[in-house]
């Protein structure tokens, strides 16, 4: 297909898929409360836009669409880096990835808009004993590195 003709029907198909991906990303961004899933949804929207761009670029026979997609790719990488760093910081503060607890910019005196947490779909745990990994330090830290880091701190 890369060397065959790209008709307007093909373009329509690409645009339609792009639109659907974009819309689904919007839904994910609007409804999910996990910060990381929200970011994934935003990336999904970017993918939809990328499909649109590549389709248009192919249809018009120039490189602009692909170049724009490359730019989007780069920006997405930057966004991922910075946003993940921020997420890690937020998680360190609140020990939760819930976006609805970060509402510091709201006007004073407004009611909470999130439903209460008791109506949760039950969590079906796997049967049997569970052992979830807890990243406790195993063993002593090597003393060499302690000395080295101490010197560095000085």
């Amino acid at each position: 297909m890369p060397n065959s003709i790209f008709t307007s029907a093909d373009l329509t198909a690409y645009l339609a898929i792009g639109a659907v991906l974009f819309g689904l990303g919007t839904i994910g961004f609007l409804s999910r409360r996990n910060l990381i899933v929200m970011f994934l949804s935003a990336e999904l929207m970017l993918q939809g836009v990328g499909l649109t761009l590549v389709g248009f670029g192919r249809y018009h026979g120039n490189w602009n669409g692909q170049i724009l997609m490359i730019i989007i790719l780069t920006v997405a990488a930057c966004e991922a880096a910075v946003s993940l760093a921020l997420v890690v910081q937020l998680f360190n503060r609140s020990k939760s990835l819930d976006v609805t607890i970060w509402r510091d910019i709201r006007e004073a005196g407004l009611p909470a808009l999130v439903e209460l947490d008791q109506d949760v779909e039950p969590f079906l745990a796997a049967p049997g004993s569970e052992s979830y990994p807890h990243l406790s330090p195993s063993g002593r830290e090597p003393e060499v590195s302690v000395v080295a880091s101490g010197q560095r701190a000085n």
Binding site: V20, S31, V37, V88, F91, E121, F123
Partner: peptide, 28 residues
């Protein structure tokens, strides 16, 4: 690193799923 299992409350309870879905599909 942050959350090793998908059983957190906020993962099992979407925020206003009906409104979000309607908005999204009107957009689509």
């Amino acid at each position: 690193l942050a959350q090793s299992e998908g059983k957190a409350v906020y993962d099992r309870l979407a925020r206003q799923p009906a409104q979000a879905t309607v908005t999204g599909f009107i957009l689509i």
